[in-house]
Design a protein around this nucleic acid. Structure first.
Length: 579
DNA sequence: TTTCCTTTGAAGTAA
DNA sequence: TTACTTCAAAGGAAA
């Protein structure tokens, strides 16, 4: 098991985030991955060709058209974020991470800047990218960056899937750039790096109008004039603050001073000037969003009672008004979210599915099918994101976002029996994954959490709950059926159960079981419960046959086909009486 | 137009 | 410490 950095206190997600599982299908998966990698490599190549073609032509008019001048901030940076995610994916698929140099760090997170050169003496692409991110004005050999003055912007991205890839420009930490990729995007250099843009019609370089900065600096309509200088981020003494500081958010008077060296190096390229001198108030002066910031205008999440007391206390402006201006700082993405962002497009392309719920189910299974190394890189990314986020918003707390989203109607109705899952599940189990579209994840065939009885609990182990308790591991695989109508086939596995799953379970449990559904035990947080009582109903048809429980002939057939898997695991069939 | 769905993980709260 | 809740992304579906 790869050890991540010895696991210090701040090393969230390192050792304990490893999900250890393996099954007999892993080899096969690897093979297919290699094939896929080759294919993706070809994609990268072709995309690069397309990119140059697009660059040389003014054919991005379509993209330009779909790029509103006053694009919502969030959209812009989300696109950019996607862009990076996609780029990251391609870079990975391109084999960049196929052979991690550091077993303990299977995911090469940060190039060794002290030696950002490849063995042959050339500057590694990632290092180049990083250098450019770190020192945007640094003229890095290799043309990786500055040539991008004309490179496509996030606006070139399609709505769903980034079209243009800059795989060779993108740093593996691209998800981290989400907090500032508008400004430091390697593939989309900020305007201060390329003060000239090409007139799409004439091709003549010209100074962009502020409104044209939106792809890079998605400005809120009223904030355009706030930009003092394109290089203001490098000139804090006269520039504006690029990143919004949550009202009352900074409890640390000098957030930048709280940075550790590594983080400051990581962050400095993007944030330091602004971190050093927090703005006098919460307003995002430039309107330049941080990816983690959602303008209230975009995401209406009102009610003054949502504002943290500290915000009330520290802000002279009335809560109502402040609320309007207060940016919504989003939570940093966790590992799975990063993975989702990266893989969603792929899954969508493969499966022709569009419903995110279904996609997410697949992604969830794929997530479990990932090797430890693959997961590790996402955990590491997530860790970096959290670090970066915490450095960016030292005073921010996840609690700040509590109540900003409409509470889901879920959970046990007060008048319903808490243990009655079948009654509790009001909503229909959507047939997310039609059988003919069982574009399944490797998980189902290569050892998803369900298919890996060998080490199921390990596969389900949460980073937060690194090692499933012994009791969990020892728990027999139980199949629980519920008779009739609201029958649930509880395919109970010993498992992880992230604490969050309780919420998921709650929401899921609101699913009606008019269709047979399979319930994956969620328990609670890995070490929290030894008894997987709670189950998460999964749409019956959304599951791979291997995930089906035996009661029905179909289930049995499926089970039979996977008997080998189950043979290795204690199996108990439990019929739950109707309650 | 808003919320739900669905996933996992992180972080928060309550007991 | 444990158990539970909320939110992060995504976008079609449903209300």
């Amino acid at each position: 098991m790869p050890q991540l950095n010895g696991g210090g206190g701040d090393d969230l997600g390192a050792n304990d985030e490893m999900i250890s599982f393996k099954d007999e299908g892993e080899q096969e998966e690897k093979i297919s991955e290699n094939v896929s990698a080759e294919r993706d490599l070809d994609d990268v190549k072709s995309s690069l060709v397309n990119e140059s073609e697009n660059n040389s032509s003014s054919s991005d008019s379509e993209q330009t058209e779909r790029r509103p001048q006053t694009r919502p901030d969030s959209e812009s940076y989300e696109k950019t974020r996607d862009y990076f995610s996609e780029a990251l994916r391609r870079q990975q698929d391109g084999g960049f991470f196929k052979s991690p140099h550091y077993p303990g760090y299977p995911f090469l997170m940060i190039p060794d800047l002290t030696n950002p050169y490849l063995s042959n003496g050339s500057l590694s692409p990632s290092a180049r990218t990083y250098l450019q991110m770190k020192w945007p004005l640094l003229d890095v050999p290799g043309s990786a960056g500055l040539k991008d003055s004309r490179s496509p912007t996030p606006g070139h991205l399609s709505n769903k899937v980034p079209v243009v890839q800059h795989a060779h420009h993108v740093h593996p930490l691209t998800p981290l750039i989400t907090y500032s990729n508008e400004h430091f995007s390697p593939g989309t250099p900020p305007s201060h790096l390329s003060p000239e843009i090409l007139d799409p019609k004439t091709g003549i370089p010209r100074t962009p109008h502020p409104s044209e900065l939106s792809p890079y600096y998605p400005l809120s309509p009223g904030a355009v004039g706030s930009i003092a200088h394109p290089l203001s981020w490098l000139m804090p003494q006269q520039g504006q603050h690029m990143y919004s500081i949550p009202p009352g958010g900074f409890r640390h008077p000098y957030p930048a001073l709280a940075m550790n060296a590594s983080m400051s190096s990581l962050v400095s390229s993007r944030f330091s000037p602004h971190m050093v001198t927090p703005p006098p108030h919460s307003l995002h002066q430039t309107g330049i969003p941080h990816p983690a910031i959602v303008s209230p205008a975009i995401k209406q999440e009102p009610s003054s009672d949502n504002i943290s007391p500290s915000m009330h206390a520290k802000s002279p402006v009335p809560p109502k008004k402040e609320e309007d201006k207060k940016p919504h700082i989003k939570k940093p993405l966790n590992a799975f979210m990063l993975y989702m962002k990266e893989m969603r497009a792929k899954v969508v392309a493969e499966c022709t599915l569009k419903e995110s719920a279904a996609i997410n189910q697949i992604l969830g299974r794929r997530w479990h099918s990932l090797s430890r190394e693959e997961q590790a890189k996402y955990y590491e990314l997530a860790r970096k994101e959290r670090q970066l986020h915490s450095q960016l918003y030292p005073g921010w707390s996840a609690r700040d976002n509590y109540g900003k989203r409409k509470k889901r109607k879920r959970e046990n109705k007060p008048d319903s029996k808490p243990e009655d899952f079948s009654i509790r599940t009001k909503k229909q189990c959507v047939q997310y994954l039609p059988s003919e579209k069982m574009c399944d994840s490797p998980a189902s065939s290569h050892g998803s959490m369900l298919d890996s009885p060998a080490t199921p609990s390990a596969a389900l182990a949460s980073p937060a709950a690194p090692a499933a308790t012994h009791s969990e591991q020892a728990q027999p695989l139980s199949l629980t059926t519920k008779p009739e109508g609201r029958m649930h086939h509880h395919f109970s596995l010993p498992g992880k159960a992230s604490g969050s799953t309780s919420s998921s379970s709650s929401s899921s449990s609101s699913s009606s079981s008019s269709q047979p559904s399979i319930s994956i035990p969620i328990g609670t947080s890995g070490s929290q419960s030894n008894t997987p009582i709670l189950t998460r109903p999964i749409p019956f048809t959304s599951l791979h046959p291997s995930m089906l429980s035996p009661p029905s002939p179909f289930h049995q057939a499926a089970l039979h086909s996977h008997h080998a898997l189950f043979q290795s695991q204690p199996l108990s069939l439990v019929t739950k009486p109707t309650e």
